[in-house]
């Protein structure tokens, strides 16, 4: 049952991403606009001290502008619809930059057994890994690690802490 749900979630991510993979990131209405491959960054008075004009945008700089944490429901490793775009943009970054290396850190909330929670954190990291690979990320670009409940983002025994701790952190290495 769990695997079927995961498949559906993957399919949803895929549909959301569209069928063709763009080679440059879509301009983001909030973030600084990326230039073309040869150009730099358009700084039109909004940028508060980013990169200078004419400078090449490296993949790690692009990575810094992407949300780096994906959150999960209780006992679930399904990527939620609102995170599909984030995952898609990381996948594009990986596809466009074969040198980029990413570490997916899976985490769980504190409830239950510690080693089983290592398993749940890994399941979440693998869910993100498969979504990234499905959309162009390569095996050799992606490494996973699960910290289970050992590295909580929020402390305390409340649902709000739990929901912040059920997560995958996407770190470029």
């Amino acid at each position: 049952m769990r695997y079927i749900k995961e498949l559906i979630a993957l399919t949803a991510v895929f549909l959301f991403a569209g069928c063709t993979q763009p080679t440059v990131p879509d301009p983001d209405p909030v973030d600084t606009t990326y230039g073309s491959d040869t150009g730099g960054v358009t700084t039109d008075g909004v940028d508060d001290g980013g990169w200078g004009a004419g400078e090449e945008v490296s993949w790690d700089q692009m990575a810094e502008n992407l949300p780096a944490v994906i959150y999960f429901e209780f006992d679930s490793s399904d990527i939620r619809a609102q995170d599909a775009d984030t995952v898609r943009r990381h996948a594009i970054l990986l596809a466009d930059n074969p040198d980029a290396r990413v570490l997916l850190e899976g985490h769980a909330d504190e409830r239950g057994s510690r080693e089983y929670n290592i398993g749940l954190g890994e399941r979440r990291a693998q869910s993100v890994r498969r979504a990234l690979m499905f959309q162009g990320g390569q095996t050799n670009q992606i490494r996973t690690v699960s910290f289970g409940e050992e590295r909580p983002a929020a402390t305390g025994s409340s649902e709000s802490a739990y929901s912040q701790n059920r997560r995958v952190e996407i770190r470029y290495e």
Binding site: E115, I118, G119, A125, Q126, T144
Partner: peptide, 10 residues
């Protein structure tokens, strides 16, 4: 011991 491998199957 528990091993997960690259694909994370514990």
């Amino acid at each position: 011991i528990t091993l997960g491998g690259v694909d994370g199957n514990l």
